[in-house]
Structures are given as C-alpha cells and as structure tokens.
C-alpha cells in the first residue's frame, strides 16, 4: 500500500502568535477514507492548509506520495492535492461557474480542449450540467457548494480534502454529496474530510483522527465512539444509532459490535434475530435503569 500523506512533527502558530497545531503526526494510505474530527478551533482548517502548501511550516514536515511538498512545483502540487474549503463563496471567485471550474486546469497548463472537457466532466460529476454560464451569486448555497467541489475535481487530484462538506446542506443534498464523495473514493481517490456531523461520519470514513491542537485519538469510527472519555474531552458526540444500541444492550440486547449507521443497524438486527430464535429478547432487571443512566451520563456534555 502506498502512503499518500505523511505529516511528521508539524507545529504551527499563526503570525499573531495563536498556536494552532502542535507536533502533528499523521499517516494516510492511498485510497483510504479519513475523517478528522475536533471541536471548533481545533486546527482542522489550519492542518488542511498545510497539506497543499498554502501555509508553510518551518521544516519539511509534509510528504505527499513520498515527495517533499516544499520541493514540488505548483502544477505538480495541485495535481496531487485538491482542497474544498468551508465557505463556497471563498472558492468561487471568478465571474462565472465555467471560469471557476476552469481556473485550476488552466493553471496546470492544459490546452483549451482538455480544459473544456474537464469542466464538463467535473460539473456532471456533481450534478451541475449546463451551469457553465451561471454566475455564482445567483446559485443556492447547496449549488455553490457543489460548484466549489467541481472546481477542485477539475484538477483531478489524487487526494481530495474537504472541509465540512455537509454543513448547512438539506438532507437530500447531504446524501447526494456523500454519494459523490464515496464514488470518488471508489475511483481510487484518497479522501480526507473534516466534519462535525457525527451521524454522517461513519458513512464517509474508514479511520478517524481526533484533533484538538494535537492529535488526541486515532482509530476506526467504532473505536473512537466507544471511547467516551475522549469524546467528552473533545466535545464530540456519538452517532444516535450507536447510542441507541448501546442503550438496548442495557435492556439485554446481545451483540458484540454496535452499529454505527442505520444501514448497519438493520444488518445487525437481521443477523441477531436470524441466528437467534427468530426474535430478540429485551427485558428490564433491577440495574437496567441505573446502567442506562450511567451510560448516557458518560456521553453527556452537561
């Protein structure tokens, strides 16, 4: 397996003295789906700005596909790493959607024919066919968000970094976007995503890093969400389904692994019921309510 991103000992303070990152170590393999979680101000955006060289650390700490990021030429860099930032208005800075989506490919020095091809392909990938001549200020927020993604996809990067892609989207747009991202990952693109939306997290990640100035946790979503201490410390929450099934275990539901998403829940329930006697058995004993309360307390921020 190839290493896509390796960050070693990255420390960064903003020019005004705000410390943002401290001794970050991250290794991400090609094709992995990584989610980075952490409270507001944890340094997620700052970390991302380092992954394509927009912000520079003091020493050579970021390697992309085995190459030192600082030694890479601009065109090379944008071919490897594409970042979609939080606010689409910051990323659609050209007069029309076409100009925005063509911006990266033109800077890569591609010829006109190829640029137009890529614009077309990128727009259809995010479901915005025919939006070439539209101006950004007349688009809805969700459309702008997708256009911003297209403007990065047109560079066909091998690593795709997304800063809160699902924030402020309606449920349908959110589901569509998650689908697009997972499709891209299936095509072999490494995806690194920062998000606060824990219910959507399991559908977008194989592995999670918990960031809070420094890396304070790492593991599969299940490992991370089972660690209530860590969650409490970093103001995180577990997905509702996960919590519900944990409560069910207090009522005597017997399962070794807890589901992270609705789909998984259906799958697990079916399996347990079929392997059992055709039904599951829940009951209340004298400690049930105490257990439930204890569990909920351990996941409660208040």
């Amino acid at each position: 397996m190839k290493e896509a991103i390796r960050v070693k000992g990255l420390t960064y303070s903003y020019p005004d003295g705000t410390p943002a990152l401290e001794d970050i170590d991250i290794t991400i393999n090609e094709g992995e789906r990584i989610v980075i979680v952490g409270p507001n101000g944890a340094g997620k955006t700052t970390l991302f700005l380092h992954l394509n060289g927009t912000l520079k650390s003091q020493d050579n700490t970021v390697m992309i596909f085995g190459k030192n990021l600082d030694d890479m030429k601009v065109e090379e860099r944008i071919k490897e790493v594409g970042i979609v930032f939080q606010d689409p208005d910051d990323q659609l800075f050209m007069p029309t959607i076409f100009d925005d989506v063509a911006f990266g490919p033109i800077n890569m020095g591609l010829d006109e024919e190829e640029v137009k091809n890529r614009v077309k392909k990128a727009l259809s990938r995010v479901g915005l066919e025919g939006f070439e001549d539209r101006v950004p200020h007349n688009l809805s927020y969700g459309q702008k968000k997708r256009a911003a993604l297209a403007a990065v996809l047109s560079m066909e990067p091998r690593i795709l970094i997304l800063d809160e892609p699902t924030a402020n989207l309606d449920p349908k747009s959110r589901a569509d976007l998650i689908q697009v991202i997972n499709d891209l990952n299936n095509d072999g693109i490494t995806t690194v995503i920062a998000m606060h939306d824990v219910n959507a997290l399991p559908t977008l990640s194989d592995r999670v890093y918990v960031l809070n100035g420094k890396i304070v946790g790492e593991g599969t979503p299940r490992e991370i969400f089972s660690n209530s201490e860590l969650l409490k410390m970093t103001h995180l929450e577990a997905p509702d389904v996960f919590k519900l099934f944990k409560v069910l275990t207090c009522f005597g539901y017997d399962c070794d692994t807890l589901p992270m998403s609705i789909d998984e829940a259906v799958e697990f329930l079916t399996r347990t019921i079929e392997s059992g006697s055709g039904h599951i058995h829940l009951h209340i004993h004298e400690h049930t309510h105490e257990e439930v309360r204890k569990f909920l307390d351990s996941y409660n921020h208040h």
């Binding site: 065109e75 860099r77 944008i78 050209m94 100009d99 911006f103 990266g104 033109i106």
Partner: peptide, 16 residues
C-alpha cells in the same frame, strides 16, 4: 487568496 493558491494561482489571471 488561500483557495486561489490551492488552485495554482501564480499572479496572472488566465481564462479561456
């Protein structure tokens, strides 16, 4: 500016 840099902006606007 950050997002322009990350799309390879080097100072001159180019468009088709």
């Amino acid at each position: 500016y950050h997002s322009m840099i990350s799309k390879g902006y080097t100072g001159n606007p180019r468009t088709i």
